[in-house]
Design a protein around this nucleic acid. Structure first.
Length: 406
DNA sequence: TCTGGGGTCCTAGGACCC
DNA sequence: TCTGGGGTCCTAGGACCC
């Protein structure tokens, strides 16, 4: 059996690099990639964390997702820039579009990462390492940002390889190189080994990827159950995941927000959920999908998360049905605690409206069909607001407002 | 001036059926 | 008297990723 050839292409410090390009385009004289800088959230909106860091900031020990407060303590003259998601989506699209020319077997893995399957192209590309350098350098000259390219015989190793020395590098991690290049790395470097798993592994005196690779499966199973096989395979560089668009069954979309202040009034929570439902159901219709499951998500002021979900009898894309379900969930699950973050998730998405067949129920005529609702979406999109909402919902919303004003 | 937002996948336990 | 398991569906929560 011939070995596969997989590339993993990873944008270096994506948000920071992309912001740097935009700033330079706008005439900003400094390249923020060259100074101690981060892209950070908004502290006044209680989202003050590091989203991306420059190499200089990294040298100060600043890590992604830490608070800006703590980052500034490590580096007092740190420059903080806000994220520009619209620009990031634009750059991401350019990046992925560019890569498509090399293989139709491409997986957009995240906003700034992609896998390419180049298996069976050896008559087109005679030298894969040369090709990787070509891709890396062309992206740099064409778009102005750098990438790392990992080359391997499977997705896991390609991903591990692109994570070796950064930035602007090409690395290989072919099957026969796993022992030399991957086994010496510490266990935290293995993909899918996070904080909890690495702590458990360290307690068992498993400190490097090699330690894990050579551990007895029976021993590992005692502590990690079914996860053991996955861990041992990963440490041995074994992975047979296909580079395919993930047509997974459990697709979901969600929306959530940290509130400006902790909220313990139900009418205020409803007001937020109302806005979120309008936005998320619009997203659902834009994808031409229907949802089977509606969930509500809470984080309270003690940072405890909880959620409640319900499976609908029939899949839907209707704002009103979703909103009514969300409000039911709220009333039945909110613990009357102080809420820091609230959100909605629509899960078990499908392509067709499934209707449960009942012998007794009469067919209920839908009041508004999807095409009508989509017209409303268009109007709202055009005027950049929720100018048009279902009358019945408006009624609910107004009554909530009245309660608040009373 | 503490601690984002959007995802996927897995597990455990309860209900229910045979 | 006593006490099965297998299978499926559903929900809650956790680990991990970028």
């Amino acid at each position: 059996m011939t070995k596969r050839i997989i590339f993993h292409i990873d944008v270096n410090n994506a948000f920071l690099s992309w912001s740097a390009i935009l700033l330079i385009q706008k005439g900003y004289s400094i390249d923020i990639r060259k100074i101690a800088s981060v892209i950070g959230g908004d502290e006044t909106k209680r989202s003050g964390i590091v989203l991306a860091k420059s190499p200089v900031a990294k040298k100060y020990g600043i890590v992604t997702a830490e608070t800006l407060y703590s980052a500034r303590k490590k580096c007092p003259n740190l420059k903080v820039f806000p994220p520009n998601y619209q620009w990031y989506y634009h750059m991401s699209k350019e990046f992925h579009e560019y890569l498509k020319q090399y293989s139709p077997n491409i997986l957009k893995y995240s906003i700034d990462e992609a896998f390419l399957d180049l298996t069976g192209t050896k008559y087109i590309y005679t030298d894969y390492i040369e090709l990787a350098y070509h891709i890396k350098d062309e992206i740099k000259t064409k778009f102005g940002f750098t990438v790392n390219v990992g080359i391997a015989n499977n997705m896991l190793c390609a991903k591990m390889a692109s994570d070796f020395e950064k930035p602007d590098k090409v690395h290989t991690l072919f099957d026969e190189e796993v022992k030399n290049k991957m086994w010496p790395l510490s266990i935290e470097d293995l993909f899918m080994v996070g904080k909890k798993t690495s702590k458990k592994l360290r307690e068992l005196d498993i400190n490097t990827i090699g330690d894990l690779a050579n551990k007895d499966l029976e021993f590992l199973t005692k502590y990690f159950k079914n996860q053991a096989i996955f861990l041992k395979n990963s440490a041995n560089g074994l992975d047979d995941t296909k580079v395919q668009p993930q047509e997974s069954k459990n697709q979901s979309i969600s929306i959530s927000e940290t509130l400006p202040k902790d909220v313990d009034r139900i009418d205020e929570l409803k007001e937020v959920l109302f806005r979120q439902t309008l936005e998320l159901s619009r997203q659902l219709r834009a994808k031409n999908k229907y949802c089977n499951v509606v969930a509500i998500i809470f984080k309270n002021n003690h940072f405890e998360n909880y959620s409640r979900q319900i499976k609908l009898e029939n899949s839907t894309d209707k704002t009103e049905i979703i909103y009514n379900t969300v409000i039911d969930l709220l009333e039945n699950s909110w613990k009357k605690d102080s809420i820091r973050l609230i959100g909605i998730k629509l899960a078990d998405l499908c392509n067709e409206r499934k209707k449960q067949i009942s012998l007794f129920d009469e067919e209920i005529e839908e009041k508004t069909d999807t095409s009508f609702q989509k017209k409303i979406d268009e109007i709202n999109h055009k005027f950049g607001s929720n100018s048009v909402v279902p009358a019945s919902m408006l009624g609910k919303r107004m009554s909530q407002k009245r309660i608040k004003e009373d």
